[in-house]
Each structure stands twice: as structure tokens, then as C-alpha cells.
Nucleic acid binder design. Structure first.
Length: 260
DNA sequence: CGTCCTGTTATCGG
DNA sequence: GCCGATAACAGGAC
């Protein structure tokens, strides 16, 4: 589920429902999900309130009491608010109870994902090498980063969270399809126009994906993601969709539309 | 039963 | 050091 647009939609759910209300209980359903020791985690959060949120790539940082709570969702994470304790979602990992009597559950079907406390935001993103956010990055920054990644495959570079953060397997396929670039093209083989087009397409695609998530609509008609299957045909030219493995992830593409 | 999977990380070989 | 490939982490869906 969660790449940048999904995570941004989580953040926008959290803002109106969780900010400014005292946390009156913290329930740890799965200790392994916590990177911070359980007791310290609970003690730091209890009776505090979330003040603001920010997102960088696939990470949400919630500010409270001079610290941050970091949420990372792995492959199957979600957030859910509910009012009735009996409505506790399956696979809840951590639950916050607010004074207004609402609950916020951090959910993950699989055990990937994590929740932890961060003392210093700048230090943390440096240490964890979380690159500039894919929606925030300027063209100049993008060009610099692509220069640094010039020996990488286009697909790998787009998914590298230390280069730019937020794009995963699905949206990298989408960006490459709409940019008509074969996934295993080396970045060094792209001309300046293609780099600029990539930069524009990244923002355009992530923004439009976010809009459809927020409105609960299907993806726009020109999106490739619904065609990510070797049983499907290219929505543009009707060629059979191809698949290849790049660093053990499947990449889907159209061999006619995406030039090598 | 076997296969697949939107993420990240460690490790190995080139 | 950089890159790519792979395994590992888990467990539900099909």
C-alpha cells in the first residue's frame, strides 16, 4: 500500500483528528514493531499532545514535546481512527487513545514497518540517509542527484530512498512508463530533456495519485499501474506487457513504448 | 501446497 | 566506494 501518496493521505487523516488532544493511553500490541524501548516510549508520550506532522518520503514525523514520533509503514501499513474500543482493527501494532475518546491505530498486516521516537530530526535524516522528498525536490537538486546516480538503472535510482524519497516499486514503474524510459536504462544514457521530463512526471504522477486516493477515485485513465501484469496489454499501443526483475523486484513495462 | 508482494537492510561479488 | 543481486524479515491472499 504505502508509497508517498498513500503515506501523505495517512498524514492528512492524522492532522485533523489527532493534533492538540492529550494522549491518555498508549497500547503496544506488538513490541517488535517498536524501535524505542516500550517503557520509554509510553512514558514519553503519555499525557502529551501531538503538535504537528511532517512527511519526508514514506516517513511521517509527528512533533510533540520537542521530539518526534516516527511512523514507517513497511509494505502493508495503514492508520485508522475509531471511537469504540470494540472496533479495534485487526493487526493493530500500536494504539493511541486521546482524551476526546478517539483511538488511533497504527496497523500492519505483516510485521514490516516501525514506530520510534526521534530526538533530532535533522540528525536522523542524515544518519538514516533519507533523501529529499520526491514532491519537494527542485529540478536543480534532481539533476545533481541523477548525476550522482548516473551508473544506476533508472528504476533503481528512482527507488533509492537515499537519493530521493517516496517512490517505490509501483510508482517507479508508473514514472518510467509515462516518461517512456526502459527500466534498465542507465541514468547516464538519458539526455537533459529526459531528466527534466522525469522530474516533472514524478511530481505530476504523485500529485494526481494523491488526489485520487483522497477522493477515493480510481487512478486517472492514463495511469499504467492497473496494467502491471504480464496478462495485460499496453493501454497506449496494445503490446503485451513485459516483466523483468531488478534487484529482486518485478518491474512491468511496455517494450514498444519504453525505449532502450 | 506453492507463489506472490506497495519496504528495508545486510552481505557478497564485480 | 559504488552497483546489482539475493536473502531475510512475515503472513495473508489466491
Amino acid at each position: 500500500m504505502p508509497e508517498l501518496p498513500e503515506v501523505e493521505s495517512f498524514r492528512r487523516k492524522i492532522d485533523p483528528q489527532a493534533l492538540g488532544s492529550p494522549i491518555i493511553d498508549v497500547v503496544i500490541k506488538e513490541e517488535n514493531f517498536l524501535e524505542t524501548p516500550k517503557d520509554e516510549f509510553k512514558k514519553s508520550l503519555l499525557n502529551k499532545e501531538f503538535e504537528s506532522t511532517r512527511r519526508r518520503g514514506k516517513n511521517i514525523f509527528i512533533k510533540f514535546n520537542m521530539k518526534y514520533l516516527l511512523l514507517h509503514f513497511g509494505m502493508s501499513g495503514d492508520v485508522q481512527f475509531y471511537k469504540n474500543k470494540r472496533k479495534e482493527p485487526k493487526y493493530s501494532k500500536v494504539i493511541f487513545k486521546f482524551k476526546q475518546n478517539t483511538f488511533l491505530s497504527i496497523i500492519s498486516i505483516r510485521k514490516f514497518g516501525k514506530v520510534q521516537l526521534i530526538e533530532d530530526y535533522e540528525k536522523f535524516i542524515k544518519k538514516m540517509k533519507i533523501g529529499p522528498d520526491a514532491l519537494e525536490i527542485t529540478l536543480d537538486e534532481f539533476k545533481t542527484i541523477m548525476e550522482q546516480k548516473k551508473r544506476s538503472f533508472a528504476k533503481t535510482a528512482l527507488m533509492d530512498q537515499s537519493a530521493l524519497s517516496g517512490i517505490g516499486n509501483l510508482y517507479s514503474d508508473e514514472v518510467l512508463f509515462q516518461s517512456r524510459i526502459f527500466p534498465k536504462t542507465k541514468i547516464s544514457a538519458l539526455n537533459e530533456g529526459q531528466i527534466e521530463e522525469l522530474h516533472i512526471n514524478i511530481k505530476d504522477i504523485l500529485t494526481r495519485a494523491l488526489t485520487s486516493i483522497l477522493t477515493h477515485d480510481d487512478y486517472p485513465n492514463d495511469f499504467f499501474i492497473p496494467y502491471r501484469s504480464i496478462d495485460k496489454k499496453c493501454p497506449v499501443c496494445k503490446s503485451k506487457i513485459q516483466r523483468l526483475k531488478i534487484s529482486s523486484r518485478h518491474s512491468f513495462y511496455c517494450s514498444t513504448c519504453q525505449s532502450k
